Simulated scan of single mutants.
Amino acid sequence: MAFFFAITTPFGIALGIALSTIYRNNSHSALVTVGLLNACSSGLLIYMALVDLLAADFMGPKIQGSVNLQIKCFIAALLGCGGMSLIAKWA
C-alpha cells in the first residue's frame, strides 16, 4: 500500500497541475462532474456509516434486550446526524 501511495500521489499531482490550465470552475461539465463525484462520495460515506458501523452496534445483544437503550441510541444517532448537518452548512 505504501508503494501504491508513493506512485499514485505524484501522478495525481502532475495530472492536477496539467489540468489546471484548461479547467474552468463555472463550466457546465465541471459542475456536473463535481456534483456527481460529491454524490458518490457522500453515498459511500452514508453506506459505511449505516451498514458497516451502526448496524453492528445496534444489533448487539445488550441493545436488543433493552427498548429504553434502543431509544437512547436512536436519539443519539439522530442528534449526531443533525450536528453533522449543521457543520456541513458552513463547510
Rank of each mutant, 00 (worst) to 15 (best):
A2I: 04
A2T: 05
F3W: 12
F3M: 14
F4G: 04
F5R: 07
A6N: 05
I7S: 08
T8A: 13
T8L: 09
T9Q: 15
T9I: 11
G12C: 13
G12A: 13
I13P: 04
I17R: 14
A18G: 12
L19F: 11
S20Q: 07
T21A: 13
Y23K: 13
N25P: 02
H28M: 10
A30S: 14
V32N: 05
G35Y: 06
G35F: 08
G35A: 06
L36A: 09
N38D: 12
A39P: 02
S42N: 11
S42E: 07
G43Y: 10
G43E: 06
I46S: 14
I46K: 15
A49Q: 01
L50W: 11
V51C: 09
D52Q: 08
D52I: 06
L53C: 08
L53Q: 05
L54I: 03
L54Y: 00
A56S: 05
D57A: 13
F58L: 09
G60M: 08
G60P: 05
S66L: 12
I71L: 11
I71N: 15
K72V: 04
K72H: 07
C73Y: 03
I75K: 00
L79A: 09
C81E: 06
C81N: 02
G82T: 05
M84F: 11
S85N: 13
L86M: 12
L86F: 10
L86P: 09
I87F: 03
I87D: 03
W90V: 12
